[in-house]
């Protein structure tokens, strides 16, 4: 059997009216709304498409996440989409998590699965690190390709041909030996939505709840992998050229826009 492992994240978004306490290094959970990370919809979809293209029972898709109770919702969403089983790893001692620590925990969990292919989202919407997937590849000593728009995985030939999305719309095609880790960009496919019914049925699939000791780690091991400490969180200092307000009346905003365009661009045909 070919095994695809897809690490995912329950990502958080800030409420419009969040407040920041003085001297804090994290946001109060009351001001966060969480959901399956946008990029992970695409990595999970890529894995399910590989599974569906193969014969019945030939490919297994395993989703894993490092996260508290909240992450169960994201894992269930992936099981409902078609992943076969899931695992969530958590320990209350995990605080101020950053990419290298998450990769340390994931490496311990993913190594046990002996994957043929690991697919990650390029980044998470909340942290925007673009780092956890390739850090995981580094720890697992797997060949890796970042920012894929398309993958052709030849399980028998143990290779993957990947379209990398470069800057300015340029695409590079590369081939790597597998097992490998590939990070998937948004737009790589059309992610399916799980129906409410499928989400209820997903509860019957295997979803392991693991502690650090279950994957052979201690909290100190994870801390030893830390890349950075957060020493403060603050509102950004906007540049000096803060925008001049055009007001909040649509008619006068339109007038001003027509004026500015007239001055900067000059008379246009049709204008």
């Amino acid at each position: 059997m070919v095994r695809l492992v897809v690490p995912i994240k329950q990502a958080a978004a800030l409420d419009e009216d969040f407040e920041l306490a003085d001297g804090s290094t994290e946001i109060d959970a009351d001001f966060l709304e969480s959901d399956l990370n946008e990029w992970d919809n695409f990595s999970v979809e890529a894995a399910i498409q590989i599974k569906e293209a193969a014969g019945e029972g030939e490919v297994e898709v395993v989703v894993v996440s490092v996260g508290d109770d909240d992450a169960e919702e994201a894992l269930l969403a992936c099981l409902a989409k078609g992943a076969d089983r899931g695992a969530r790893i958590w320990d209350e001692a995990l605080t101020d998590l950053e990419p290298l620590m998450v990769a340390t925990v994931l490496a311990a969990a993913v190594r046990r699965e002996e994957p043929d292919l690991v697919l990650c989202g390029v980044q998470s919407s909340d942290a925007a690190s673009s780092a956890t997937g390739v850090a995981l590849a580094g720890l697992l000593e797997l060949p890796h390709v970042a920012v894929a728009r398309a993958i052709e995985f030849d399980a028998a030939g143990r290779t993957a041909v990947v379209d990398r999305e470069l800057e300015g719309g340029l695409v590079e095609q590369v081939s790597v030996p597998t097992p490998a880790l590939i990070t998937i960009q948004t737009g790589a496919n059309e992610p399916r939505y799980a129906t409410l019914r499928a989400i209820k049925q997903a509860g019957a699939k295997q979803l392991d709840e693991l502690g650090l000791e279950d994957v052979g780690l201690s909290a100190d091991d994870v801390e030893a992998g830390r890349g950075a400490r957060t020493v403060g969180i603050a509102h950004p200092q906007r540049g000096e050229s803060s925008a001049e307000s055009l007001g909040e009346d649509a008619g006068s905003v339109a007038d001003r826009i027509m004026e500015i365009v007239g001055e900067q661009v000059g008379e246009r045909k049709g204008a």
């Binding site: 950053e98 990419p99 290298l100 990769a103 340390t104 390029v122 925007a128 690190s129 673009s130 780092a131 956890t132 997937g133 390739v134 850090a135 995981l136 590849a137 580094g138 720890l139 000593e141 890796h144 390709v145 970042a146 920012v147 990398r164 999305e165 470069l166 800057e167 990070t183 030893a224 992998g225 890349g227 950075a228």
Partner: peptide
């Protein structure tokens, strides 16, 4: 996009201090 492809792997493997973005 190129550094996404190797810098995090290097930082994790060699246990460097690390910050992206």
């Amino acid at each position: 996009v190129d550094s996404f492809g190797f810098a995090p792997a290097l930082a994790a493997w060699r246990r460097l201090g690390f910050a992206p973005n």
